[in-house]
Nucleic acid binder design. Structure first.
Lengths: 199, 199
DNA sequence: TAAATAATGACTGACCATCGGTCAATAAGG
DNA sequence: CCTTATTGACCGATGGTCAGTCATTATTTA
């Protein structure tokens, strides 16, 4: 009877049309008018596809996380030591230009989660954590199988992820060097482990 | 010559007048008009004492951190095991009503740091971290002296603080249980350490 | 079958309410 | 009477709404 558009797709298109704008200035500097203009639609249309400004960031993050997951999964089967894999697992997002861009927006998203967090956003965050937990599990499991690390390494998973999240915040709010921090932690941890193994 | 007010004091008073308001709803729900009314001053007066809305949160946090520092310092000399001290060091802010209130506002502040972060705010964050690092050092140093933990425990300080920051975020964005997470981490770490010591 | 008409979802931008921030005027202390 | 503090009316900008328009497809009609 009438035009039927793929809502999901259009939502994504609009969101990504203003990705660069979002990267340049934060969400706070972005106006709905700008977004609409950049996406080439009317202001009202924005509200056909998004609840509010924050919802646009949510859409972008959803895709970013999917890409990120893909990059993390590649690490699992790399031909490296477990320690190196772990380093990459935590460092990958800090390492390249693309990651930095995503990190920039992810911080905006974190800020939103902490202040405007809807149930939907919380659920998404939980899902993400479970996902990362699973990948980390795979890396550690392989390390255990190879005899590189002890079984108990699994107990560190949750704390490691929390550390990793803290690092996302700290690298920005006080300018910590991610490489140094991650290496510092892993070295110390492996130092403990090795000493134990040499029992 | 003319009226002389204690700018510092008045700034603090205004900020704390709207502390409860800030706790109820976040800063985003708060309007300058509300703040002014609650503090019993004109809207223009607010801008005599604060750069902007975010600056008000900054003022409150400054005091909170000072209180928090005080509570942390008390831990150093407690008659407990190092492990227990460490648990308290990380858990104290999650533990009681007062801490929760402060956490609520601290999260607002973190969000601001990640999005509106001025140089002044970054400097403050760095100062805070150094402060916590120092207190943590003292706790660990005592533990080393008592032979409870190895010298290398010092190498974990930075990562532990980053973990702790991540926990502040995670407890809110995905509802992690702080007690469980902190205990999980400490148990695992001490497990590693003890195994090593029994060498 | 083709033209006419109806139905419906997509789209729009003028409009509105609200809010952060400014400033000219006023008050008050010394 | 000068200096400092205070104020709230005012302003521009912005997020969000909604009544109306448009484009496409379904249905009817001849």
């Amino acid at each position: 009877m009438a035009i039927i558009v793929n809502k999901e797709k259009k939502r994504r298109n609009i969101a990504f049309a203003c990705k660069d704008l979002l990267l340049e200035n934060g969400i706070n500097e972005l106006t709905i008018a700008q977004i609409a203009k950049t996406a080439g639609v009317g202001k009202g249309t924005i509200y056909e596809y998004f609840e509010n400004k924050e919802d646009i960031v949510f859409e972008i993050i959803t895709v970013f996380i999917a890409e990120y997951e893909h990059r993390l999964l590649e690490i699992v089967d790399e031909k490296r030591s477990t320690k190196e894999k772990l380093f990459h697992f935590f460092y990958i997002i800090h390492g390249d230009e693309e990651g930095h861009k995503q990190l920039r927006i992810y911080r905006e998203f974190l800020a939103i989660s902490m202040t405007h967090g809807t149930r939907e956003i919380m659920d998404f965050n939980r899902k993400c954590r479970d996902l990362f937990l699973d990948i980390l599990s795979q890396i550690i499991e392989k390390g255990v199988e190879n005899g590189e690390i002890p079984e108990q390494a699994h107990d560190m998973k949750s704390a490691l992820l929390t550390f990793s999240l803290g690092l996302v915040v700290d690298t920005h709010t006080i300018g910590l060097d991610p490489k140094e921090e991650i290496n510092g932690l892993l070295n110390t941890l492996f130092n403990f482990i090795e000493m134990k193994e040499k029992r």
